[in-house]
Simulated assay, not measured.
Amino acid sequence: MRSAAQADLAKYERALHRYFQIPASSRKTKDREKILKVVGVDNTLEFLTMHIPLWEVKIDELLDPTCTDMLPISISHSYVNWVRGAIRLMPDGARVKIFSSKLKSTGLKKAILQLLSRMTEDAPRDFEVTDVQLVEKVHKDTLFRVRDEKGKELSLYLSRFGCLGEYIYSGLPGLVGLPVLPVVHHVTPQGEEILLKPKEEGVNIYLDEGVTASRILREWTWWVEGAARQDALGDCIGTALRYGHYVASPGKKVFMIDNIELFHLNDTDVRIFEPIHDFLPRKAYPDDQGKRDALQARMQPDYDKVYRDQMRIIVREWAEIERYLIQMRRHIRTYTGEVFEKVLANVKARVFEKR
Results as ranks from 00 to 15, higher is better:
193 E>F: 13
138 V>Y: 09
258 D>F: 13
7 A>W: 01
178 L>A: 05
127 F>P: 02
70 M>K: 02
291 K>S: 07
327 Q>S: 11
235 D>L: 13
306 V>D: 09
332 I>M: 06
202 G>I: 11
238 G>L: 06
31 D>A: 14
350 R>E: 15
162 G>V: 01
35 I>T: 03
133 Q>I: 07
179 P>W: 08
167 Y>N: 00
107 G>A: 11
107 G>H: 14
254 V>N: 06
335 Y>Q: 07
24 A>Q: 14
6 Q>S: 15
283 K>I: 02
138 V>W: 11
224 V>D: 05
11 K>F: 15
64 D>K: 12
214 S>K: 09
203 V>H: 03
355 R>Y: 06
50 M>K: 04
71 L>T: 02
9 L>R: 09
240 A>V: 11
249 S>D: 07
112 I>S: 05
253 K>E: 12
231 D>M: 11
125 R>G: 15
178 L>Q: 03
289 Q>G: 07
34 K>D: 15
346 N>T: 06
130 T>G: 00
310 Q>E: 12
298 R>M: 06
196 L>M: 14
188 T>V: 12
215 R>A: 14
252 K>R: 15
299 M>F: 14
68 T>D: 05
36 L>R: 04
316 R>G: 03
148 D>N: 15
97 K>A: 13
17 H>P: 00
206 Y>D: 14
72 P>Y: 10
169 Y>T: 02
204 N>G: 06
62 L>C: 08
96 V>A: 00
227 A>H: 09
115 L>W: 06
133 Q>Y: 09
56 E>M: 07
216 I>V: 15
346 N>A: 11
311 M>L: 15
285 Y>T: 07
44 T>M: 09
152 K>F: 01
350 R>I: 04
231 D>C: 07
134 L>Q: 02
64 D>T: 12
145 R>H: 11
346 N>R: 08
73 I>M: 00
286 P>Q: 11
139 H>I: 03
48 L>S: 04
223 W>L: 02
255 F>A: 00
228 A>Y: 01
261 E>F: 09
299 M>C: 12
82 W>M: 07
78 S>N: 13
235 D>R: 15
10 A>L: 14
152 K>G: 02
43 N>I: 02
128 E>S: 03
268 T>W: 11
222 W>T: 10
286 P>E: 10
271 R>V: 12
251 G>D: 11
55 W>A: 07
19 Y>R: 06
191 G>C: 10
114 Q>D: 13
119 M>N: 10
40 G>I: 02
152 K>Y: 00
260 I>N: 10
